[in-house]
C-alpha cells in the first residue's frame, strides 16, 4: 500500500521503548494493539492516536455550545449544536439540561432560572454526566461558562457588563444573565 493509513483491525506499529499511552482510534485485543479507525497514527508526546475531526456525541467533560429552547423554574433545556468545537450536522442536535443547581457555583439556593437565561440565548457549558434517557446534564458553574450571546427584548445584541448583567447596545437597557467571562479579558 502506498499510504501509511491503517485500516480498522490492522496492527499499529509501535516503536520499541517505553510503552505509549493509547488514545482514541486505537484498542488492544489479545495483547495486540490495533487501529479502530481508518487513518494514520500520530505520536503526540507519550501517546499515540488516530484522530478524525468528525462530529461526535457529547461525553462527560465535553465543552458544548447550544441555544436555550425551554425554561422552567427547575431547569433550562438546551439544544446542543457544537461539541468540543466540532459543529454537528443540521438537524442532528442533542438535547441537554441545565438544572437550577448547576447554573452557578455560589449561592445556589438563590438562583432563579429566569434571571440567568432566556429563550434563544447561546450558552457555553460543560457536560457533567450522560444524564437520563432524554438529555445530557450540563453545568455553567464556572467563570468562563454561561451565556455568550443574547439578544435583548428590543432585539439588539447585548454585551456583558458584569458577571450577572448584560446591556443592550441599542436601548442601553440592562438585563440579567449568567454571563460567561469573555475570552481574552
Amino acid at each position: 500500500m502506498p499510504s501509511d493509513s491503517l485500516l480498522p483491525g490492522q496492527p499499529v506499529p509501535l516503536p520499541r521503548g517505553p510503552t505509549l499511552k493509547l488514545g482514541s482510534g486505537i484498542y488492544t485485543r489479545n495483547g495486540e494493539t490495533r487501529a479502530s479507525l481508518f487513518g494514520t497514527p500520530q505520536h503526540q508526546g507519550s501517546s499515540v492516536t488516530i484522530s478524525r475531526i468528525k462530529p461526535h456525541p457529547p461525553a462527560p467533560n465535553s465543552i458544548v455550545l447550544g441555544s436555550i429552547t425551554r425554561l422552567s423554574p427547575q431547569q433550562a433545556v438546551v439544544s446542543i449544536t457544537v461539541v468540543d468545537g466540532v459543529p454537528l450536522p443540521p438537524g442532528e442536535d442533542f438535547t441537554g439540561v441545565i438544572r437550577v443547581q448547576d447554573i452557578r457555583a455560589t449561592e445556589k439556593d438563590k438562583v432563579k432560572v429566569g434571571d440567568c437565561f432566556r429563550g434563544g440565548d447561546v450558552i457555553k457549558g460543560l457536560v457533567i454526566s450522560l444524564g437520563d434517557a432524554r438529555s445530557y446534564y450540563i453545568t455553567t458553574a464556572r467563570n468562563d461558562l454561561g451565556v455568550i450571546f443574547a439578544t435583548s427584548e428590543a432585539g439588539g445584541t447585548m454585551e456583558a457588563v458584569s458577571w450577572q448583567e448584560m446591556r443592550c447596545r441599542k436601548t442601553g437597557k440592562v438585563e440579567k444573565r449568567k454571563c460567561a467571562k469573555p475570552e481574552g479579558l
Binding site: P8, G9, S24, Y27, R29, S36, L37, F38, G39
Partner: peptide, 11 residues
C-alpha cells in the same frame, strides 16, 4: 462505517 469514522474492531 469506516468512511464515517466510526470506531470498530475491524472491517
Amino acid at each position: 462505517l469506516a468512511k464515517a469514522g466510526i470506531e470498530m474492531f475491524g472491517l
